[in-house]
Design a protein around this nucleic acid. Sequence first.
DNA 1: GCCGTTTTCGGCCCGACTGTTTTCAGTCG
Length: 570
Amino acid sequence: MKKNQDTADLLYHIAELLELKGESTFKVRAYNKAARAVETLDTDIQEIYAAQDLESIPGVGLAIAQKIGEYLKTGNLEYYDELCKNIPAGLSEMLKIPGLGPKTVQLMYSRAGITDIDALEQAARSRRLRRLPGFGETKEKNIIKAIERYRQRSGRITFGKAHYLMDEIFQYLDRYVKTGTIVPAGSLRRGRDTVGDIDLLAVHDSPGQLISAFVGMPIVGQVLGKGKTKATIVTRDAVQVDMRILEARSYGTSLQYFTGSKDHNVKLRRIALKQGLSLSEYALEDVESGQKIYCETEEEVYQHLGLPYIPPELREDTGEIEAALNGTLPHLITLQDIRGDLHVHSDWSDGSDSLETLATAAGQRGYGYIAITDHSRSLGIAGGLGVNRLQEQIHEIQRLNEQLDNVTLLSGTEVDIKADGTIDLPDTVLARCDVVVAAVHSAHQQDERTMTKRIIRAMENPNIDILAHPTGRLIGERDPYQVNMTAVLEAAERTGTAMEINAQPSRLDLIDVYVQKAKELGVRIAIGTDAHASNGLDLMQFGVMVARRGWLEKGDVVNAQEADTLPFRS
DNA sequence: GCCGTTTTCGGCCCGACTGTTTTCAGTCG
């Protein structure tokens, strides 16, 4: 569904160009909103276009629908070409420099002829920028620093990296917050698979002291801002972290506000206004009387608006507010619901721990079972098991199970889906396994049609229980392969194959949008850590996060069941 | 440009911080 992303990118770019042109912010917002809606569609936009139903996409009206239509039909958009003609291409990239917005970029272009980042840097270094109205020496220096940061910045980081960085910060600040609390907000709290920057909120008796400690941490590379209630730093490896100090009486409204998403908040505020209430991070305020209602918890905020509590992972304005109004919010799965792990590697292939060690680790986590799914023989590089070794392992697991008390080891394998969709181990051997996980590990470059056919062929093999890391992406390193995920999900439903949410922070696929789609289709989901050592079992929390973002409940997840009721054990 | 259990026209979330301004505009989240 590359066209969805292409279309969304086009709309995003139009929004940027309109911004630079000085168009109404509402128009800009409209294009951005439409772009986001297209980006998160779980249907191929070409199908929607073919059904002449583009305007059914929320945020897409007549004007944008026509533009999308023209683009899909001809591969071009005259309106867009016209915009590009009048605005130098480099201006869009200048907008990406933190601190520079459309007004500033436009001013620098019209008054100083600056059309890209290189020219901007030159102007700043030669002290020509400070002559512009509203500019000064400080601003000039800040722009130079911002450009340097922009050039070394790595973009969004994985949720896992953000999570571990947050832990590190908490450990450091621990001694300062004995009398208060610090919690994450923003996309980190919502559990997005990538995080742009880290938002932290704190309640503390001596805000000044906490802010000073925060900007003085050893990991700080640069302090971008430091005020009474908020500070912003960039770590040495270029991750931005914001810290805000809150008042205890406003904790609920503030946490709600800074958790976002922006779209969720906008809709929530609109609902508030309809009830005569203005919602800010400080309080709910009666518009007429000016009376303030303080909320110490998020639950109170939602309650005052007549809504049940909406978990952070759902707050993306993808129907959660409507579901809350209708009383149809899901009871999201939690880490405590997980009973086992169905994707684990041992030292029989490229893992580092023995079967016994893994069994013990599973027990320590309260699991009833884990499936040992070492690589099959195609992955020679990962020490893949051939038929004989796998049979040996099956015997060894049977032997161990007789000694184990609370944990059952399931014998399994992670087989390779070859380029033509066949499996690299014979069915006779697969049939002897408790769990067979299948995945693509090669020929990622196949076109969408070939890849889709390949995967579906594998799923039609009755021995295949789970399709692992279904898009093959490695966040920030490798794009997902081209595959028609809707067709794959329909095949999963038809063949009874479970789709995996791979809990590795660099993978985290199936992604949330398709998890939700899978649920709608009645496809089961397995959350697997793909652990290569016993501590890798702890990655489960990241997989559960994705499941929650996909609206999953306990009953939707295979490994939230006990071993004896697993659907594919015969 | 989109949208409608007060609206098909007139709205569209709200406040902190910064740098430059003597009272505010721009940017960000």
